[in-house]
Design a protein around this nucleic acid. Sequence first.
RNA 1: GGCGCCGUACCCAAGUGGCUAAGGGAGAGGUCUGCAAAACCUUUAUGCAGCGGUUCGAAUCCGCUCGGCGCCUCCA
Length: 441
Amino acid sequence: MLRLHNTLTRAEEQLQPAEDMLVRLYTCGPTVYDYAHIGNFRTFVFQDLLCRYLRYRGYQVRHVMNITDVDDRIIQNSKALGIPLKEYTTRYTEAFLEDSRKLRILPPDIMPLATDHIPEMVQLIRRLEEKGYTYRRSGIQPGARVDADRYEKDEARDFVLWKAAKEGEDFWETELGPGRPGWHIECSAMSMKYLGETFDIHCGGVDLIFPHHENEIAQSECATDKPFVRYWVHPEFLIVEGEKMSKSLGNFFTLRDLLAKEHRPEAIRHLLLSVHYRKQLNFTADGLHQAHSALNRLENFSLRMSEKADSSDPCPSFFEQVRLAREKFIEAMDDDLNTSAALGVLFEFVSTTFKMLDQGSLSGGDARTALGFAREADQVFDVMPEQQTLLDSQIHQKIEERLAARRRRDFAEADRIRDWLLSQGIQLEDTREGTRWKRLH
RNA sequence: GGCGCCGUACCCAAGUGGCUAAGGGAGAGGUCUGCAAAACCUUUAUGCAGCGGUUCGAAUCCGCUCGGCGCCUCCA
């Protein structure tokens, strides 16, 4: 059974969804004011892993991830560009979804936009108002709690639910008066709308514990008199080359920046998942290269196993090895998603299987089973390069030409063909069983 | 100042009381190969920031010191 560290209790707890095998999950999505950076993606990739692992373990997951499409930065930036708010946020929402696809982040089941849920937020604020939890500040317009982002509070623990409209800024005409929602109210309103007043897991970066999540708890539980969330899960921050990522330090990377430097998205995903989520991750160029090399090993494994695989039955002893590896893999992941240990299990398995292959003690059925396990683990991690299926006939022909050249010991010609193929991104490997090729990335 | 996290090999990183301290990367030597690549074999921490303590036994628990980092109403 999966054990998760619950920030609420500061302890590891067994996950027991309220409704047997259904997990109701809410994750704090992006604020679409700019391209998401690599730190944002650490969180999103982790959330994707959580989702995938829950499904791997047989849970049905209802995953809701919000898009915050109204806030100060968005208003400011769209005004600066002179384009409507909606046009601005659509641009960055699409960029976010595209980046997510590249990192193999599965889309959530429901992805509500804050601006589509103003009535729900107003209703929630009204509930709080009726119960006397709110107050209105003197100001231009009435509101449950009205002011600009730079506001003064009557008490340190107070926060704003509804911000009064300001000159020249987008606003919604509501029964609270013209204005726009405060930062926290959208997550309470939307999570409860789609997941109920109490749901299982709520995820977000550690920086959101306070004030965002504490405020969500306050406003939700005051409104419903029910516990809001059962398990809070917070991935730690990512730092870059040992320092906090910031624009002024020049170590601020979006996914696009990294892909422009020809880093593979799978390598980025692997690096992001290779460190336990509750530990700070130091994102470095060296780490990226190491991740890239590790992935090559998995790719070679996949290639050689597919080559060897046939439909025969695996040996009982090998089948037992696979069963053991699976057990260890699950054990690691069940332990608060210990991805480093789980990857260790996978690579250890790769290593012992390669050994057997080289010793000639791996059958075709074993190879098929081995590949099956690697792919199974990869349902959770999704870092393996895509499988090459059909041999490109041109490549095949060049390989034949090179073989002929080698037979007549014309190595200059053979190397010329190999170099040419390499220049086309095809790498050859000569083995006892013949020449193997793969695409370089 | 308040709250919290971390320091394991050249690099990344599991392990949190008891077999020989996972795994990946990088390096070195070897097998295979016309050469290369891949794979395999051998090799790289008698030691886990330092110093004390608890214990039959500690990287793992406790204390202190040193070093790095995060949150404390912009933040994933």
